[in-house]
């Protein structure tokens, strides 16, 4: 029961935290974006693999909000060919120049603040901390920004009765997590929270209106 209570408290904190401030979307709406260019990610974490790994998670949530998203890997390669292989350089370039290069309406900049796994005696805490900014290609104004921190530590559900056994199970899990921390689910959660939460994420784009979901399975509802 204690766990349930904690869970509820945690959830309500998360909910209120994310809903407390309703963002101002006037500039975003006025910009009338159709396409978003996601440029390589700036890395302030200690993990050198973080930027590329993160890049693989970011297209889906933005495209699913109804925007055309430029192919992230191709964009990265083209920028590298243009001498912009350093993400910091890309982020310091004028937004309008980047948009001109690709014909994009806006640029999404992401900065990875944390991407680490900390060993804490009987548990390993995996943390992902991200700052997102969308800037207008015409004016260079910031249209939207968000900051997400996600923390995960594996919990042992088995209560074997013996505290020692439980402790051992937890320690083993912590070691496994530390050896090969899986950041992707955390990054995906952070992205989902950042982009899709109502009153907090980005407003639906041009492809969002007709919910085009002609599934592979035949439609059961009669279309007449």
């Amino acid at each position: 029961m204690q766990v349930l209570k904690k869970f509820i408290i945690l959830l309500s904190i998360m909910m209120t935290a994310s809903c407390a401030v309703q963002k101002d979307y006037s500039k975003f709406r006025a910009a009338n974006l159709r396409s978003i260019l996601i440029v390589p990610v700036v890395n302030r974490s200690v993990d050198v693999t973080a930027p590329e790994y993160f890049l693989s998670t970011i297209s889906i949530p933005v495209a699913e909000q109804g925007y055309y998203v430029f192919p992230v890997n191709l964009v990265k390669r083209v920028l590298e060919d243009d001498g912009l292989s350093d993400a910091d350089l890309v982020h310091s370039a004028p937004t309008s120049k980047l948009c001109d290069l690709f014909g994009a309406d806006a640029v999404l900049y992401v900065s990875i603040e944390r991407w680490d796994a900390q060993y804490m005696i009987v548990t390993t805490q995996v943390t992902v901390d991200l700052i997102y900014t969308i800037k207008d290609g015409k004016t260079g104004d910031t249209l939207w920004e968000d900051h997400q921190t996600m923390v995960y530590s594996p919990q042992s559900n088995q209560n074997s009765g013996s505290p020692m056994a439980t402790l051992i199970v937890m320690a083993v899990q912590a070691a496994i997590t530390k050896a090969d921390p899986n950041y992707l689910p955390l990054a995906q959660q952070a992205n989902a929270k950042a982009f899709t939460y109502p009153g907090h994420g980005i407003p639906p784009g041009p492809y969002a209106t007709p919910i085009a979901t002609p599934n592979t399975t035949p439609n059961t509802t009669p279309t007449q």
């Binding site: 693999t49 890049l55 693989s56 998670t57 297209s59 109804g66 992707l184 989902a192 969002a208 979901t213």
Partner: peptide
């Protein structure tokens, strides 16, 4: 309800790109 239907058939595109970078 937030994750029921996807607009596009991504087919694990995220994992595909991740594996490629890895």
């Amino acid at each position: 309800s937030g994750c029921v239907t996807k607009r596009y058939a991504w087919n694990n595109y995220d994992d595909t790109l991740y594996q490629y970078y890895k």
